[in-house]
Amino acid sequence: MISTVMSASVPLMIFFIVSISFKEKKKTFENFLEGAKSSISILLEIFPTLIGLFVAINMLRVSGVLNFIVNIFMPVFAFIGVPGEILPMAILRPISGSSTVAVATELMKQYGVDSYIGLIISTIMGSTETTLYTVSVYTRGKNYKNIGRVITVALIGDILGILLSVKLWNIMS
């Protein structure tokens, strides 16, 4: 039942948006094309970042460095009930959005996209944000003296998001 509702939510959202636009007699397809075209430039912009980071992160993984680090932190994470496999993702999440995409993709390939680990990773990715990047973009390099407080609270939010994603899949899988 739950899975039926879940797979229905996206088509319903599309139905909702398209039918509102249609009912209001907007140029629905033209608007669609306009938005779709705007995504191409974004994609071209993130493409070099992706290539660069994917290569570097895979080097980190294949060389054995990532496993080394994960093994050190594994007991700590296991103690609070978080599987060690998601650690690389948890560490990178606040630092860089594109490297999170890279690591998350790699991990989902490795453990299976619909596996327990894959689903936790997807949930973390969708529910947390690239904190440090966001803060630096929004303050635009201005040296506000209370910037540390914003970062602290935002990082607490990230940690909470990661813990909650794990707990939720323990309960609702």
Binding site: I14, I17, V18, I20, S21, E24, K26, K27, T28, N31, F32, L33, E34, G35, A36, S38, S39, I40, I42, L43
Partner: peptide, 15 residues
């Protein structure tokens, strides 16, 4: 990404 940006733009243009 192309598809979703399109859909979101449809919504953006509605009353």
């Amino acid at each position: 990404m192309c598809f979703w940006s399109g859909i979101m733009n449809v919504l953006e243009k509605t009353d």
